[in-house]
C-alpha cells in the first residue's frame, strides 16, 4: 500500500471524531491511526492489537494498547464505554463477523468501519480475466492474504440491514483515495461507514 492511499480512510475517520471523545481502535497495529486521532482530533484513545510487533511499536509510541484477539470478542469491556469503536481495514480478516459487529456496538455508541470493496471495477476486471484481484486496497496474493471474507458495499449493507444496524454515514474512496459519489459499488475501492444501533420503537 502506498502511504497516501493507506491513510485515505484515516482522513475520513479523523473527520468524524470530536475532541474529548473516547475511541477504541480494533487491530490498531503500531497505533498510527490512534496517534493521529489523539494529536489532530484530541480524542482519548485505546487500541487492541494481537501481534507482538504492533503492540511493541504502539507502546514505544505512547499509545494505550491492549494486546488481545478480536476473535475472542470484546469480553471484559463494559457496555457503552466508547463514543467510537474503529475497525480500519480489518473486518475482512475477521472470522466471527457478526459477533464482532455486535460487540463493537455493545462497547461503543458508534462503529466506524473501513474495508476494501471486492466489487471495485478493477477487482471485477481481474476476476473476469481469470485472476484474483491484487490492488492498492487488496494488496495480497490469494495464497498469502490475511483476508478471510471477500464482500462488497452491497453485501455489507445487506448484513447491516439483517443485523438492524443503522448506517449513519458512508464515504467511498477510489484507489487514489479520492471520494466517489456515484456508482460507489463499482467505482469505490475502499469504503468507510459509521454505524449505530437502530433505535427501538
Amino acid at each position: 500500500m502506498s502511504p497516501s492511499s493507506a491513510r485515505a480512510d484515516f482522513d475520513v475517520i479523523a473527520s468524524w471524531m470530536r475532541p474529548g471523545e473516547r475511541v477504541l481502535d480494533l487491530g490498531c497495529g503500531d497505533g498510527s491511526l490512534l496517534k493521529r486521532l489523539i494529536g489532530e482530533r484530541g480524542v482519548q484513545g485505546y487500541g487492541i492489537e494481537l501481534e507482538d510487533a504492533g503492540v511493541l511499536a504502539a507502546i514505544a509510541g505512547g499509545i494505550n494498547v491492549i494486546q488481545g484477539d478480536l476473535e475472542q470478542g470484546l469480553t471484559g469491556f463494559d457496555d457503552a464505554t466508547f463514543d467510537h469503536v474503529v475497525l480500519s481495514r480489518t473486518l475482512q480478516t475477521v472470522r466471527h463477523t457478526e459477533r464482532l459487529l455486535a460487540e463493537m456496538l455493545r462497547v461503543g455508541r458508534e462503529a466506524v468501519i473501513s474495508f476494501p470493496n471486492f466489487a471495485y471495477w478493477k477487482n471485477r476486471m481481474a476476476v473476469m480475466n481469470g485472476r484474483m484481484p491484487v490492488s492498492e486496497d487488496l494488496p495480497y496474493e490469494w495464497f498469502d492474504t490475511p483476508n478471510l471474507r471477500f464482500f462488497t458495499l452491497l453485501d455489507f449493507e445487506a448484513l447491516c440491514a439483517k443485523m438492524e444496524l443503522s448506517i449513519r454515514e458512508r464515504q467511498v474512496l477510489d484507489e487514489a483515495g479520492r471520494p466517489v459519489d456515484e456508482e460507489a459499488n463499482f467505482l469505490g475501492s475502499l469504503a468507510v461507514y459509521r454505524l449505530g444501533r437502530r433505535l427501538v420503537g
Binding site: 503492540v55 491492549i66 494486546q67 488481545g68 463494559d78
Partner: peptide
C-alpha cells in the same frame, strides 16, 4: 485490571 482502568479512562498498556 486493564478493563477497570479502561473503564475509568486511565492510561494503560497491556502486553501478553
Amino acid at each position: 485490571m486493564v478493563h477497570a482502568l479502561v473503564h475509568n479512562g486511565q492510561a494503560v498498556a497491556y502486553a501478553e
